[in-house]
Design a protein around this nucleic acid. Structure first.
Lengths: 354, 354
DNA sequence: TATTAACACGAAATCGTTTTAGTGTTACAC
DNA sequence: GTGTAACACTAAAACGATTTCGTGTTAATA
């Protein structure tokens, strides 16, 4: 018997993958017997069970997951669509998603919309045909600009959807967002309390949900502390054009600000470099606070004060909501929106004393 | 007829997904007819074809991709395993892979080994059971340290494998690597030519393939130009301990180097900050060159000279090799190793004049 | 000796497709 | 009137698993 196995096993590289059917044939039993034996069913005699298991192990049998999924009507795969991957924050979110998914036995399939509406729709269509049990999406900028969310509506009828970071009130589903408003407020308040009088903001156009919220937080603080902000202190960067040129304007202003809140790392670091190039002393003459605690903030010089976003936590929260939704029998419990706190991380681009 | 459709279509949210079988039942034809009608087979009358297609569209029918894959014995999915995602270089590679894959109709499934041997094996097992048509892997550090590659050997019998960036000569398969040796040489040569006399290197332990190659390049240049490098100028960072403390040693040396080549951005930026803290003038008193042209290099101050790695290109090359391997009938054409060039990008952490 | 329970296994349905090999009807030519 | 070609469609197998429902054999019990 042993020899027989070894003999056969030498052929394993030749043919295609080993299946239940092939094992059954070789052993002269039915596929049902093999299946049951492998799952240690008491329906099958111990003798047969051992024989089958030994054989399966020898051939390195692994059940075909496609067949399994088809039968179980479950793919155990989560589709994730993010705007871009070369981005510290999204990387951390993905890492959280992957971690949480694996913990509950799911796999993750990542696609990128490249901020394009077209690619977002395409990706969803590609993954929707039974490939995934649920979607985790952060909306592309173009989609936000177009404000066309039909693809999400269609999707929701088939499979659960959780939106994270870039969300929209029109879409009714579970959501996980960063406390963008609170972050904007905290940053601005800190600048004010450390003595900045002339506050500027470098943000995105209003259709970018997170940019808008951060700006609102800024504006609220400005208002609460009775500070006037001239319109030229509010820069809304259009990424289709030269970013540096747009940011430079506020730095070059004759009556320039002494505190700048930027809604992301890149804007903050770019602005700070521009200021340094003009010989402006940081933080004494100009303070900076960014958003996202990535490598740019850590390694810029001076290191950037910023709002840490806890992307990993956001990913874990999002996948938790999604899997709960997938696995719940009565799927009509109300949708919820989780807000992830942000931490103000003070480094050297801001003053320390109040 | 029209009314009938509308009537039914209102129920579509209720039941599960629409399938060929259901369409067939509703229309009173066989599933084969529906299948053929949808693929515009001339076996089916124009009348029936139109009817089926209209119905399918109304119900927003999408073929179940699991069933398709099972039948076609192809998943059209590529499994990618990288050591970590929160990493600029790997992000760019992923983006290249995704781009190339989509172009040829494949999807990408990304998993992370977190530099752990265990997780690498687990991920491969998870994806190997028919889920993916091929693997793209960058080896985890722990796996390199353990030098245990049986999981890859087993894998290769079932499905093609392409290794990228972190490779190993023991594994016989297609590979794509960066010209790490050449990069190390170029960097060192540049430092020498701009007047540095005392050259140090901050690198990884030798089991990290890319670190070793970069060090070899450094050593070759040192040798070619007849420069002596004392052993305390060669720092091999053990990431299990405090990185900063290890790097600090070479900066604090009484007879300190005037040119430092670091094998990644983080080491370079960390070293540079440490030097700045000591009041050392950069690049006049100490020059720095890193590896990987990420955000850290761009936004550090002074901005870091570095070797740009072209991760996107590497990803595209890797996926191309893999898909060619998957789609070729005679799969025994010889394995190849592609080397991606690196570009020395001079910024402000090095001297300009020769 | 007849009945029944336990045991060990197999047949067939199922998941959603595609594809090959029929099948029945009509129409036309001889 | 018969043979056959075209037409329009269906049945069934296949992909690889699981699971429900049988079924045949043996052994124990009445």
């Amino acid at each position: 018997m042993k020899i027989f196995y070894i003999c056969k096993s030498q052929q394993k590289n030749m043919g295609a993958k080993i299946t239940l059917k092939k094992i059954a044939k070789e052993l002269g039993v039915s596929t049902s017997t093999v299946s049951k034996a492998l799952s240690d069913s008491h329906e099958i005699s111990v003798e047969t069970r051992e024989k089958v298991k030994a054989f399966a192990k020898m051939y390195n049998y692994k059940p075909n997951s496609l067949a399994l999924r088809l039968r179980n009507q479950r793919s155990m795969v989560i589709g994730v669509i993010i705007p871009e991957i070369v981005h510290h924050f999204f990387s951390t979110v993905i890492s959280g998603i992957e971690h949480g998914a694996n913990e509950r036995g799911y796999n993750v399939m990542v696609c990128f919309s490249d901020e394009s509406y077209q690619k977002e729709v395409l990706n969803i269509e590609m993954l929707a045909g039974g490939s995934v049990d649920g979607f985790l999406v952060s909306i592309a900028k173009e989609t936000q600009e177009l404000s066309d969310f039909r693809h999400f509506e269609d999707l929701k009828e088939e499979v659960p959807l959780v939106l994270f970071d870039r969300v929209h009130p029109k879409i009714n589903c579970d959501k996980v967002v960063v406390d963008d408003f609170g972050g904007g407020y905290k940053a601005t308040e800190y600048l004010i309390k450390t003595g900045c009088k002339k506050l500027a903001i470098i943000t995105t156009p209003d259709f970018v949900s997170v940019g808008l919220e951060r700006k609102k937080g800024f504006l609220k603080a400005i208002n609460d502390y009775n500070i006037a902000v001239p319109s030229e202190y509010i820069i809304q960067v259009n990424e289709k054009n030269d970013i540096t040129a747009q940011i430079q304007k506020v730095i070059n202003l004759p009556d320039r600000p002494d505190g700048i809140f930027a809604v992301n790392e890149i804007y903050a670091a770019t602005a700070m470099k521009l200021a340094q190039d003009k010989g402006i002393k940081i933080p004494e003459e100009m303070s900076f606070i960014g958003f996202t605690d990535g490598y740019i903030s850590q390694f810029s010089n001076p290191s950037l004060s910023t709002l840490a976003q806890h992307g990993h936590e956001m990913g874990e929260k999002a996948i938790e909501l999604l899997i709960n939704r997938i696995e719940s029998k009565d799927s009509d419990f109300p949708f919820q929106t989780k807000v992830i706190d942000v931490d103000l991380k003070i480094r050297n681009s801001t003053k320390k004393t109040f």
